[in-house]
C-alpha cells in the first residue's frame, strides 16, 4: 500500500510541476493545487499507514492497546488543507485580477518586471 501511495504522490508532484511550467496562469493554479494535495498525501503516507484502527482509548484504559493510526499526522494535514485553501483562494482572486489588468493569461506576456 505504501508503495502504491508513493507512486501516486510522485505522479501528483510530476503533474503539478508540469502544469506549473505551462504558459497559462490558470494551469499554474491547477499545478499549485496538485502540489499542495501531493504534500498532504505525503505527510499522510510518511507518518505510517494503518488501516481500520482509529486512535481511540477504550474506557477504563490509560493507553491504546496495539497499533493505531497516527492522529497527529491527520491534524497536520487538516491544518495544511485549511491553510492551502485560504492561500489558493487568494491566488485565484489574484490571478483573476491579474488577467483583467494584463489582458492575457499567457505567462510569456508578463515580462514587464524582469
Amino acid at each position: 500500500m505504501t508503495t502504491l501511495m508513493a507512486i501516486l504522490i510522485g505522479c501528483l508532484y510530476a503533474a503539478a510541476i508540469y502544469m506549473m511550467l505551462r504558459r497559462s496562469v490558470v494551469k499554474l493554479v491547477i499545478g499549485l493545487i496538485l502540489l499542495s494535495n501531493g504534500a498532504n498525501l505525503l505527510i499522510f503516507t510518511a507518518a505510517g499507514l494503518q488501516r481500520g484502527v482509529p486512535p481511540l482509548i477504550d474506557k477504563g484504559q490509560q493507553m491504546i492497546a496495539g497499533a493505531a493510526a497516527d492522529p497527529l499526522a491527520q491534524a497536520l494535514i487538516l491544518t495544511a488543507i485549511v491553510i492551502s485553501f485560504g492561500v489558493l483562494a487568494f491566488a485565484v482572486v489574484l490571478i483573476h485580477r491579474a488577467c483583467e489588468v494584463v489582458q492575457t493569461d499567457d505567462m510569456n506576456e508578463m515580462k514587464g518586471t524582469d
Partner: peptide
C-alpha cells in the same frame, strides 16, 4: 473572496 470575485 466570494464577494471580490462577484464584484468583478
Amino acid at each position: 473572496v466570494v464577494f471580490t470575485l462577484a464584484e468583478a
